[in-house]
Computed example of a mutant assay.
Amino acid sequence: MVGLTLAGKTYRGAALFDLLGTSLVKAYQNPEPGSLANDLLWYLWTGPYSPLFGKQKMTTFERYFIEDKAAHDEQPNPYYRLRHEPAFVQKLLRAFGLDGERGHIINGHTPVKKGNSPIMANRQMLVIDGGFSRPYQKTTGIGGYTLLDNSYGMQLVAHQPFVSRQDAIAHLTDIVSTRRVVETEARRRTVAETDIGHQLQVQICLLKARLQRLTSGQ
């Protein structure tokens, strides 16, 4: 199994994310040139095992100076193949302490090519991109996605490209959107079932305990 090896220790999965997250904080708080934290900050940009990059290499240099299209290829890592498989997505969710059956993985800033579905792995993997950037619209064929998630369920909204203000005024049109239901809750979720709800419950328990001490004269 591949991973990022530093000082003889290989990091992968949640351990790799923990390492990179800690290093980012250190690099921000103390941007010391030559430090491991500072080096990892740069590694995140183009490193082959960087979860923010996700490719074997960046070929910007080749695109500028080499005409051969084969030299421009940026081979994605295995994640982009495995994310179609429900078993892999559920394993990944569990690795980060999440519910493998009910959880979802949201991929942002990832344009979906025309003809491909942004909903994968039995609706547990959602690949979305704002997509309002005009250059990407030739690839995606749309103006991007918006993910809606509330107590009723989850919906993915696809937007048609916005041509221009003049066109919208002339044809009395706005951005046309199409909604796709990803998941519907059989029972509406409550605030108490969310992460913030759990935090509020802890605060409620603390306040009740303090009130109990005050009323009992302690």
Rank of each mutant, 00 (worst) to 15 (best):
residue 215 T to P: 02
residue 190 T to N: 10
residue 36 L to G: 04
residue 160 Q to M: 10
residue 6 L to E: 03
residue 118 P to L: 01
residue 52 L to H: 08
residue 41 L to M: 14
residue 155 Q to T: 01
residue 215 T to E: 14
residue 186 A to G: 13
residue 131 G to I: 00
residue 32 E to K: 14
residue 34 G to K: 12
residue 162 F to V: 10
residue 26 K to A: 04
residue 97 G to M: 06
residue 41 L to R: 04
residue 24 L to K: 04
residue 92 L to E: 03
residue 187 R to V: 13
residue 139 T to Y: 15
residue 197 G to L: 02
residue 97 G to N: 08
residue 17 F to W: 06
residue 94 R to Y: 04
residue 13 G to P: 01
residue 80 Y to L: 07
residue 125 M to K: 00
residue 52 L to D: 11
residue 195 D to C: 09
residue 202 V to G: 11
residue 18 D to P: 05
residue 2 V to C: 04
residue 44 L to W: 01
residue 167 D to G: 06
residue 188 R to N: 07
residue 202 V to I: 15
residue 61 F to M: 08
residue 114 K to W: 02
residue 112 V to A: 04
residue 93 L to K: 02
residue 206 L to W: 12
residue 72 H to Y: 09
residue 94 R to N: 12
residue 210 R to M: 15
residue 101 E to N: 10
residue 162 F to Q: 06
residue 127 V to P: 01
residue 180 R to H: 02
residue 211 L to A: 12
residue 36 L to A: 10
residue 135 P to Q: 14
residue 49 Y to P: 00
residue 109 H to A: 09
residue 32 E to C: 10
residue 133 S to G: 10
residue 35 S to I: 02
residue 122 N to V: 07
residue 178 T to G: 01
residue 184 T to G: 03
residue 126 L to G: 00
residue 199 Q to I: 11
residue 91 K to S: 15
residue 106 I to D: 08
residue 46 T to E: 07
residue 127 V to T: 05
residue 198 H to S: 12
residue 137 Q to F: 04
residue 85 E to R: 08
residue 139 T to A: 14
residue 131 G to E: 04
residue 179 R to A: 10
residue 63 R to C: 07
residue 94 R to G: 06
residue 94 R to Q: 14
residue 125 M to C: 08
residue 185 E to F: 10
residue 135 P to M: 07
residue 131 G to N: 00
residue 36 L to P: 02
residue 53 F to N: 06
residue 213 R to L: 14
residue 96 F to H: 11
residue 139 T to Q: 11
residue 157 V to D: 05
residue 132 F to L: 12
residue 210 R to C: 12
residue 72 H to N: 09
residue 187 R to A: 13
residue 110 T to S: 15
residue 60 T to A: 13
residue 15 A to I: 02
residue 146 T to S: 11
residue 201 Q to V: 09
residue 176 V to G: 02
residue 4 L to D: 03
residue 163 V to N: 01
residue 88 F to V: 01
residue 108 G to T: 15
residue 180 R to L: 00
residue 17 F to D: 04
residue 133 S to R: 09
residue 129 D to H: 12
residue 214 L to F: 08
residue 191 V to E: 09
residue 171 H to E: 14
residue 75 Q to S: 10
